[in-house]
Every structure is written in C-alpha cells, then in structure tokens.
Design a binder for these strands. Structure first.
Length: 571
DNA sequence: GCCGTTTTCGGCCCGACTGTTTTCAGTCG
C-alpha cells in the first residue's frame, strides 16, 4: 500500500469508529480528509515536509497532527485509543446486515456477546428475543445475516458485477410498468470494486415494478420491500437495491443514488449555503420548498452553480471545486479509443490465433491492435525467444496484409529481468512496432532494487510502455514495493508511457496512480491483456479507470492514429 | 474536527424500511 493509501486508511478507520460512537460530525471530518488524502497526486511525506498538510482540503490542525504522528512513528494514538474504547466484538458484529452500533453495544452489555460466534449461540438459545425491543424475527434475521456473512467474499470486481447488472437492467426493462432503468451507485461511478448494486427505475406503478424485481430468478432472499425501495440478495451473495422513482424526479434520484456519499454531502452542504435543499425528489428552495429542478440531472448541478460532471469523477476529490470554476477535464471516452496495445495469442499463453484476435478487434471497430506475447523468461507461459519472435513478426506482417480493415502491429510483452535488462536482444526489439515491458517475477524485491529495475528498463530505447506497472491483483495481491514517483519521473524524461491494464482484477495503474502519472507528464496506454477474443471486450474497463484518473484523450496514446503512435517521440 | 461572499462560533444532508412498538428507534445508503 502506498504511503498516501496508508494514511487514508488510518483516517478512514478513525472515521468508522467515530460513526460507531455516534460522533457523526467528527466522523465526517475524518472521512472527508481520508478521501482527499486518497486523491493526493503527490507523496504525502513531501507535503508534510513543506509544512503544508493543512492546505489539503478537509485537513485542519488536529488531523494534520495525526498524519504527522503516523509519518514519524507509523502509529496513531488517536486511533489506538479509539480501538481500545470499543467493547470486544462490537466492530465484528456491526459487519452483519441489520446490526448497527446500538444493537451491538446492547448485545455485548446485556448478553455478554463478544463476537459473531457467541452471537450465534445467543440467537440459537433464543436469548436475544428476551431483550426489550427484540423479537423472534430479529433473532431469525441475525442468524441469516451470520450465514450470509460467512458465505460472502469481500467486494465484487467491477468486471464481475457489470454483466450481472446489465442482465438486471434488461430484465427490468421487460416490465411494462418500467419507463426508464439505469444503474446507479459505485457501479455507475465505475469503481474498481463494488459492495452492492443499485438499480434505478422510473415508474408510475411502483408496486408492479417492485413485484417484478423481487421475483427475478437468481434471488436468494428479500431483505426489504417497500413502495420506493427494495433490497434483495442474489444467489452469488451480491446485494441489489432497487429504487422506484416517479418519472418527474428521475434526474434527482439518479444524482442522489449515484453518490459517492462524500460527493453528495459536499453538494448538499453547498446547497444549504446557497438556500437550497437537495434530496432524491429534487432540488428545492429551502425557505418555501418550491421545486427548482428534478427531472434532469445536469440541470440540478447547473442550478447549484456548477457544470454537470461524469459519474466517474464523483468522489469528492476536487471535482466539485473544478466544476464550480469551470475547469473540469474533458474526459477520454470509449469512442476516442482506436486500438488495443496489449494482446496475447496462442504463440504464448493465449487461446486464439493472431488472425482470430485481429478479426475480433476489427469487429469491435478498432483501427489497430498490437500483438504482444510473452518472452522466454516466462517459460510457464510458453514465452518466445528471439528466433520464434522473428518468426512471429513474419506471421503478423502476413495477417496484417490479409486484413486491410485493421492494422496489426508486431509487438512483445517483454520480461524485465531482475537486473532491469530485457530478456530479448536489442536487435530483435528494433524489428518490432511496439514494445511493452513488464515485471513478472521477484515481486518481493526491496523498494529500491525494484525501482532501479523498472527505471533501468525504461532507459532501453525500444521500450514504449510498461505493463501493469505495480503488479497488484485486486483483493488478492498487493502492489510490489516501488517508488512510483521515481518511475514516473524517469518515464516522463524518456517519453515512455505507463499502461492501464484493462484486466478486471488488475486495472493497473489504478485511477489514483493514473492521475498521479499524468501530473508527472506521463502518457498512458490501454491494454486489455486479452488471452481470448472475448477478453478484448475488457477495453471499457480501462477507459473507466482513465476517466476516474481525470485523463483526457490527449493523455491516452490509444486515441492516436497508428501513424502518430509509431512516430518516434522519445527524447 | 472543519470551516467561513452572513460566521473564528455554531453549524454541519436527507429520507426509506423494519421490527417492535402504540409513536419510534435503529439501520442503511
């Protein structure tokens, strides 16, 4: 985890515990500060050394001191004391659906519950229903929540959730009572992982729409069902919220349920200061409840004195200020993307031929793809040596000739060895149109050595981009220790680019790191890393990361024509 | 705890659903 991410997570945990303790305003302050630290494009240690921590929005004297303490000692006394102030088992209990701080506290005090295990025993022995304000239903729901907690993995990858939500949108639009249907929440913001799904429906007949929703085939359990809001759990343990909204409030609801929470809080605070009230039904004048706007999401933002912004930006990381000052970036879109710059074939560990990959890419409307198979250091992936790579170049040229509808580039995903050298000779690299360099081994190297390794590779005159630069696998493998600022600096100097890998579990660089690379003057490339034709469809995932990283078309090399892309531009 | 084109003190976003109650607290987003 980067230092910034570590600081952000400390602040977030403090915020969480303060929420448990019902200290909502202090909790919000820490949560806002955590968001801002996450979005910082500079190493927070540099900011601290300049004495400018308090210039970070949301960071005042007190939080600045907490950050400094953490930077000096690696610990936070505020957090430690807060952790110790919570009774045993309470943090664990509130991870269960339907149990919050109040109930967890009472279960601890009145029944001696110290965790999920003892909670389950208490429920099975029917001791919970004896408590005032509790009943059999509550007991039953606690047992169900424990069961779901156990079978549920953490969060879902965006790439797993999007097809599910697409299926639901199609299903819901098949209901006559449904006028419009759209995804909201973190899926609409294209966050790399989502905790649950939000589906928004406009209808004048909410009962029919809701009934249609809760009778969807893959439902495991209905958690709640009301006229405007229902919650279900699917068999794969994904939780889905449905909101039914009258057509005239659709824009307000879309804004509201898209979030993020911090973005909305900030927006409403601005509303309060300028005499408005904003909720899911519309924007109202505070003094007389007169409706100002509700149908059109963009008009709500405009009425609040700012430009509409794409959902990918709505994380309260400076987008509201930028919108007010009319300096939002013009984000790159999928339509801007002309090619895919990281594609495997059956020459190494892919499952389709060069021609099959090219044909699928052409079908998708792409103008070019780069064939970038693994090299010999990756024996397990049947990596190519110089001899086979030369043969593959011939084959790529042949396929390119046979497919005038798309330009097929000869490339490689060349392994960066531990000493920073590439495992293919310069003579052969010189024959290629496109060189992707990547680390595939030695993930445990010290930060300094790993940084030297990657920077060394960037110095090779043939390298165009560095694939999956941090090596992280979402929720499975941490990024390797790497001084990203040093890497970006070297890359900017040499005109080498950084990849946003579109593979759902990689998305590497991440949104925040892409934004950071841009600040260093580094351009980005998108690569699906496809090993089958259908995986070429991961491209939109990478575009989402680019958008969340505030990137414009000129920041992403895949928006270039093939001529511009291949023109030598290194200094 | 943070913040200030009313403010250095006094605010701080807003509503739906459940389970248990006879009017609402707790949870969730």
């Amino acid at each position: 985890m980067s230092l910034n991410a570590q600081v952000a997570s400390i602040l977030y945990e403090i915020s969480e515990i303060l929420t448990i303790k019902a200290d909502r305003f202090r909790s919000r302050a820490y949560s806002m500060a955590s968001q801002r630290v996450t979005a910082l494009t500079e190493d927070i240690r540099n900011v601290a050394e300049r004495g400018e921590l308090e210039q970070i929005p949301g960071v005042g004297k007190s939080i600045a001191m907490t950050i400094e303490e953490f930077l000096d000692t690696g610990e936070s006394t505020v957090l430690q004391e807060l952790r110790e102030s919570l009774p045993q088992g309470v943090p664990e209990m509130i991870t269960l659906e339907g149990i919050g701080p109040k109930i967890a506290m009472r279960l601890h005090q009145e029944l001696g519950v110290v965790g999920i295990k003892t909670l389950e025993e208490a429920a099975r022995q029917h001791r919970i229903r004896e408590l005032k304000g509790f009943g059999p239903k509550k007991e039953e729901n606690i047992l169900k929540a424990i069961e779901e907690h156990r079978s549920r993995s953490t969060r879902f990858l965006l790439g797993e959730a999007l097809p599910v939500i697409q299926g639901m949108l199609t299903y819901m639009s098949g209901c006559d009572a449904v006028r419009r249907v759209e995804m909201a929440g973190s899926a609409r913001r294209r966050k790399e992982t989502v905790g649950d799904l939000d589906v928004l429906v406009s209808s004048t007949d909410p009962e029919t729409a809701t009934a249609h929703f809760v009778s969807m085939p893959p439902i495991e359990r209905v958690l709640a069902q009301g006229p405007t809001k229902s919650t279900v759990v699917l068999k794969n343990m994904l939780q889905v919220d449905l909101r039914v909204i009258p057509p005239e409030s659709y824009g307000a609801a879309l804004q509201y349920f898209t979030g993020s929470k911090e973005h909305n809080v900030k927006l409403r605070t601005i509303g309060v200061k300028t005499g408005f009230k904003l909720n899911e039904y519309g924007l109202f004048r505070r003094h007389n409840d007169e409706l100002v706007e509700a149908e059109d999401e963009a008009k709500i933002y405009e009425a609040l004195g700012m430009m509409w912004m794409p959902p990918e930006l709505r994380e309260n990381t400076g987008e509201i200020e930028a919108a007010i000052e009319d300096r939002l970036p013009e984000l790159v879109t999928l339509d801007d993307i002309r090619g895919d710059l990281h594609v495997h074939t059956d020459w190494s560990d892919g499952h389709a031929s060069i021609a099959e990959m090219a044909e699928k890419a052409a079908e998708m409307g792409l103008e070019y793809i780069a064939i970038t198979d693994h090299t010999k250091a990756l024996g397990i992936a049947n990596g190519l040596d110089e001899e086979r790579l030369m043969k593959q170049i011939d084959e790529v040229r042949h396929v390119d000739e046979m497919h005038p509808e798309i330009r097929v580039l000869a490339g490689t995903e060349c392994d960066i060895r531990r000493n920073g050298r590439l495992d293919i000779s310069d003579e052969v690299l010189a024959e290629l149109d496109w060189v992707v360099a990547a680390v595939h081994s030695g993930f445990k190297m010290e930060e300094q050595a790993m940084t030297t390794r990657v920077v060394e590779a960037i110095q090779n005159e043939h390298v165009d981009t560095v694939a999956h630069p941090t090596g992280r696998l979402i929720q499975r493998r941490s990024p390797y220790a790497l001084d990203l600022d040093a890497v970006f600096e070297a890359a900017a100097e040499r005109g080498v680019m950084m990849e946003i890998n579109c593979y759902p579990e990689r998305l590497d660089l991440s949104d925040v790191n892409s934004r950071r690379a841009k600040e260093h003057g580094v351009k980005m490339t998108l690569g699906t890393d496809a090993h089958t034709p259908s995986e070429l469809e991961f491209l939109p995932m990478g575009v989402s990361v680019a958008k969340r990283g505030w990137l414009e078309a000129t920041d992403v090399a895949n928006t270039f024509t093939v001529e511009k892309l291949l023109k030598p531009q290194k200094g």
